[in-house]
Design a protein around this nucleic acid. Structure first.
Lengths: 103, 103
DNA sequence: TTTAGTAGTCATAATTTTCTGACTTATTGC
DNA sequence: GCAATAAGTCAGAAAATTATGACTACTAAA
């Protein structure tokens, strides 16, 4: 977490950046759930047991900052907020699939 | 680091495990160098600037514990120790390549 | 014999990441 | 009005990760 995006300096390992985007205690889980369906904050909090508001909030923000998720405000009566995979986020799905096939 | 391998419990995200193997400040870099050539502790320490003995030592041990690297003692006069990619380790190379092609 | 290199370990310290609980704003239902 | 849900923020505490410096054991060279 706190993936200091501003300091991308001396990035000698090209895969390291991407790997960092998905490191952090809950990010892979968040990503997996995002592949299945749009994310809602409060249901995420219920789905990922052991997690907490603060960390999920920061993780979502960071995943958005690096362009893997995007926040969508659904202008309806109760005003929903969804966090969806972006195209960049979707491009990571095959990598995930590959990781899953190993293990 | 300190990838508590014993506690693999409630692993709901299948890719999370693999992702964790390569998370940690220096592991992706170590992995990348291991793809290029067998690793030697002291040269690794020189190659990865900003790193330190302790962390590298723990990272190497953990990468070995999860079966991505293997320690090979070369019984020659000055007694060398090499850390090489295992088959499992090699199987991750395409995933790395994919990660690099994105970014 | 003193120095240098390899390959580490150990205890402790500093830094980062994650967690807890209180609090906020807005809307809906009773 | 009062409680509940959604979607958070904030400060501070706790836990995990990473870094530092000292030290070990062995070999080899000067």
């Amino acid at each position: 977490m706190t993936t200091k995006i501003e300091i991308i300096e001396n990035e000698t390992c090209p895969a390291q950046g991407l790997l960092k985007l998905l490191s952090g205690k809950w990010k892979p889980e968040i990503f997996r759930l995002a592949v299945e369906a749009p994310l809602r904050f409060s249901s995420l909090l219920r789905q990922i047991e052991g997690s907490n508001k603060q960390t999920l909030s920061v993780a979502l923000r960071e995943l958005e900052e690096v362009g893997l998720l995007e926040k969508v405000v659904i202008q309806q009566k109760p005003l929903h907020i969804e966090h969806n995979l972006t195209e960049k986020g979707k491009s990571l799905i095959p990598v995930f699939k590959q990781l899953e096939s190993l293990g």
